[in-house]
Each structure stands twice: as C-alpha cells, then as structure tokens.
C-alpha cells in the first residue's frame, strides 16, 4: 500500500480536512489530518483500509504546538500506518480514538498525563503512571528537572 492508494481512499471521505499523505520510512505512509476530522478518519482507516490494530498513541511537544500521532498495524497488508495531527499548545484537544480502537484507552491516558493532550469523550481519563492529582506534565519541554526536595514538597500534597 502506497501513499497514493491511501489518498485515493481517504480524500473522498475527508475532503479538505485531509492535509496530505506523505511517505514515511517503514510504514505505508503518514497521514496528516485536521483534528476535526479525527473520528471520520479513524473509521475510514479501520473499516476501509483494514488497519484494525492500534499499536501506539503518543504526543510530541513542539513548543509552539503539539502533535498527536497514532501508529496502526494492518494484518492484511502487513504494514504500519502513521496518523498525525497538530493541536495548538493552548488548546491541546482531540477526539478520542478509544471508541474505534479500545486499546487507545490506556495510551491516551498516558499521553494526557505526560504531554497534556486532552482527549474529548474519553471514557476514563485518569492518571496511569503518576499519582492522582499530579499536576505536572513531565514530558513537556517547559517542565524543569526539579531538585528532589522541591519535587517532594510538590508531590507530597497530591
């Protein structure tokens, strides 16, 4: 499966909300999309293209904006696929993928607590690795490496 094949399937369904499909090493391609089209894209990718397994959901902090990416696997094509969207840093929201791939649940919890991406309509957006009430987003670039005592004072009150 080539990027052109992906464009041929996805472009009629998404229209201008599909920002393009580019080659990405080791995968079938990297699909860039507007975040408003997330749910439509997820369903099209799963039902029309056959990517039924979600391997990973992650977030990247690019300082001026943040990126949410999804890595998918197709057992039919034996290929990976990367979906990627940009969200503004002051409003990092995107629709949850857990209604399409249930395995997104914990991955999105992790991306939420570490990078601060908020997944709308997530069934159970709780802390996974850090304690309840932990306010920091440790994988953001603005997170400074704390002195242990300073962090202790902050973490003790969670």
């Amino acid at each position: 499966m080539q990027p052109d094949d992906l464009t041929g399937v996805l472009a009629p369904k998404l229209g201008v909300r599909l920002k393009g499909v580019e080659p990405f090493p080791g995968t079938a391609g990297r699909v860039r999309f507007e975040r408003e089209a997330a749910l439509d894209l997820f369903r099209a990718v799963r039902d029309d293209l056959g990517f039924r397994h979600l391997s990973m959901v992650g977030g990247i902090d690019w300082v001026d904006h943040r990126e949410v990416f999804y890595v998918l696997w197709s057992d039919d094509a034996k290929q990976y696929l990367v979906l990627s969207t940009d969200v503004p840093a002051d409003d990092p929201r995107v629709e949850t993928a857990s209604s399409v791939w249930p395995s997104a649940n914990w991955h999105e919890r992790e991306a939420w607590e570490l990078v601060g991406i908020v997944f709308d309509h997530h069934p159970d957006l709780r802390h996974l690795l850090t304690p309840d009430g932990y306010e920091f987003r440790p994988l953001l670039r603005s997170f400074k490496l704390h002195e242990p005592e300073e962090l202790e004072v902050k973490a003790r009150h969670v």
Partner: peptide, 17 residues
C-alpha cells in the same frame, strides 16, 4: 536515595522520606 532516578519526576528520593 533514589539512585539514578533521583531527579526524576516520579521517584521518591529515598524511602526514608
């Protein structure tokens, strides 16, 4: 004392805390 993870965001720097 926290070991190599002493300054990490999630690790208690020594259980004597």
């Amino acid at each position: 004392g926290g070991g190599p993870f002493r300054t990490a965001y999630s690790v208690v720097p020594g259980v004597d805390k």
